[in-house]
Each structure stands twice: as structure tokens, then as C-alpha cells.
């Protein structure tokens, strides 16, 4: 069986500046992968490459065994969704209209969404528990709601895989929880998910596989429980990280926090 996504000896550079090299990654169908790493290490760049927006300097990326270079934008959009990090809408569309935009890859150039498309958009919103947002203006809802609407829009594309770029940035605790819960539901439904995050704890919460990056490429790749060690985390972020384990009656929870002492590697660049 071919992997859902397969990245082989990938290398990327913006002009002369190399971002990462020799990245190898296989993502199986239904798997969740969390990309962790410091700012500017190229997590989003890797997502953009997997989505076909950016071309690798060398190496190849395959989706369902097909080289991404040979796929048209519409084809990619039908199987891969992308939830972007920053968002701003210039016009106050209703949230339902925004969700419905996800039907675009399934419609011809001159077509507009039909009643069925609208119903699909509406049922996706209902299922996610955001049906109440349908008529509200996208520009007037909270950041967390906006993120959920964008996820709904991506689901409206009916993709088999979704890329999330820092889905929980700028969100408060409740909204983080809502978004993470939505993501884990999608995993249970069999969707493949690749996400970047600045919160290592989320990798444990989602019990995902983790790829840890530094400024050259992958530092570690494997299940969260195995690779999220103090050593790896410290090396990735260039700051000493403590991992804790807490137990209560039902379950064990792992979490980590940085200590405010830079490691030798990260000296001088501990903050950005």
C-alpha cells in the first residue's frame, strides 16, 4: 500500500538560503503528524511544499503515489485541504458563504454552488456544532469561530487529507480545545492530518506522530511518547525543556514547559 504522503530526500531553499535538507517523511492514511520546531525553521514551508504551492529544490513529494508536480491545482484541492494560519476577509460574507466556497474545486468555472452544495455546507457546519454561525458575518465572529468556519470550509472540499498551519495560534484555552477536538474527530473519521504547532503539548493531546525540526531539517520523527523527550525538545527549540508526567484516576497526561535558561546551542537566539 502506498503512503498517503511520501516526501523523499526533499531539500528546499529560498534563493541561496537553504531552509531544510534531506527530509524524508511517510504519512499513512488516517495518521496525524505534528510538525514542531522553532520559528523560521520551515514548518510552514514544508506544508506549502506538500500542498504543491512551493517547488522543492531537490527531492520529490508524492500524494497517493502521484508526484505533486504532475497534479493540477484543482486535483490537489479535491484531495488535500489546507487551513491557513492567518486570516482576514475583505468583505463581510456570511459564514455559510465562506464554508460554501470550499465547493470550488468540484464546480466548473462558470458554475456557482447549487442547493445541494449549500445543504452540504450547512450539514458540515451543523455537525461541527457551528450551525448557529451560518448567517453571521464572517468578519464579525470571534477568532476561534473563524478558525472553525475555515475548517468547515476545508471539509466542504471533501478532502482525504488536511494540512493545518498552526491551527491554535491566537486562540484562548476553550477555542484551542474546540479546534483540537475537531481535529481529533477528523482523525477518527479516517482523514490524514499534517499540522504545524508551537505548542508541543498538543502533540500529546492528539497522540500523534511528531516530526521535530530545527534549522536544518528533522531532528526526530516518531510517536509523541517516544520522541518528545527532554533532550529532543531542548535541541529543537534551543532552550532547556522539562517534560512532566501527571497521573490522575483515569489517565496519564504528559506536558512540557521551557526553562528560562538557553542551552549552549541556542545561546543568543533564544528569543524571536
Amino acid at each position: 500500500m502506498t503512503a498517503k504522503v511520501s516526501v523523499s530526500s526533499a531539500c528546499f531553499s529560498y534563493g541561496e538560503k537553504e531552509v531544510w535538507r534531506d527530509i524524508n517523511l511517510n504519512v499513512e492514511k488516517g495518521e496525524t503528524i505534528c510538525l514542531l520546531g522553532p520559528n523560521g525553521c520551515g514548518k510552514t514551508t514544508l506544508l506549502n511544499c506538500i500542498h504543491g504551492d512551493l517547488a522543492l529544490k531537490s527531492g520529490d513529494i508524492y500524494i497517493d503515489g502521484r508526484n505533486i508536480k504532475t497534479m493540477a491545482v484543482t486535483e490537489i484541492a479535491r484531495s488535500v485541504g489546507y487551513v491557513f494560519q492567518e486570516h482576514r476577509a475583505p468583505f463581510p460574507y456570511s459564514s455559510l458563504e465562506v464554508v460554501r466556497m470550499g465547493r470550488a474545486p468540484h464546480l466548473g468555472l462558470f458554475q456557482a454552488p447549487s442547493r445541494d452544495d449549500t445543504e452540504l455546507a450547512r450539514s458540515i457546519m451543523e455537525e461541527m456544532g457551528i450551525g448557529y454561525l451560518a448567517a453571521k458575518r464572517y468578519t464579525n465572529i470571534s477568532g476561534g469561530e473563524r478558525q472553525l468556519v475555515l475548517i468547515a470550509r476545508t471539509l466542504c472540499q471533501q478532502p482525504e487529507m488536511i494540512l493545518f498551519d498552526e491551527p491554535t495560534s491566537h486562540l484562548d484555552f476553550k477555542n484551542q480545545a474546540l479546534v483540537l477536538r475537531t481535529i481529533s474527530r477528523l482523525t477518527r473519521k479516517g482523514l490524514t492530518i499534517i499540522m504545524t504547532s508551537h505548542f508541543p503539548n498538543h502533540a500529546w493531546l492528539l497522540s500523534s506522530r511528531v516530526a521535530m525540526m530545527d534549522n536544518n531539517g528533522f531532528v526526530a520523527l516518531g510517536p509523541a511518547e517516544e520522541v518528545m523527550t527532554e533532550e529532543n525538545l531542548s535541541e529543537t527549540y534551543g532552550v532547556r525543556v522539562k517534560v512532566y508526567e501527571a497521573k490522575d484516576d483515569h489517565k496519564t497526561v504528559n506536558f512540557c514547559t521551557p526553562e528560562f535558561v538557553p542551552t549552549s546551542k541556542g545561546e543568543g537566539v533564544d528569543d524571536d
Binding site: I76, E97, M101, A104, L109
Partner: peptide, 23 residues
Amino acid sequence: LLIRWRFNVLSMGDQEARSMGMN
């Protein structure tokens, strides 16, 4: 007029519009 719905998608920004499969 024929492509008027596409303006909704396009107005969300180029990268987003591409992610929704628009050329």
C-alpha cells in the same frame, strides 16, 4: 458575469483561492 461566484473565492486571497483549487 459568467464567473461572478469565483470572485467570492478569489477575494479571500490568492493562496486560499489556490487551496480551493482555483487557477
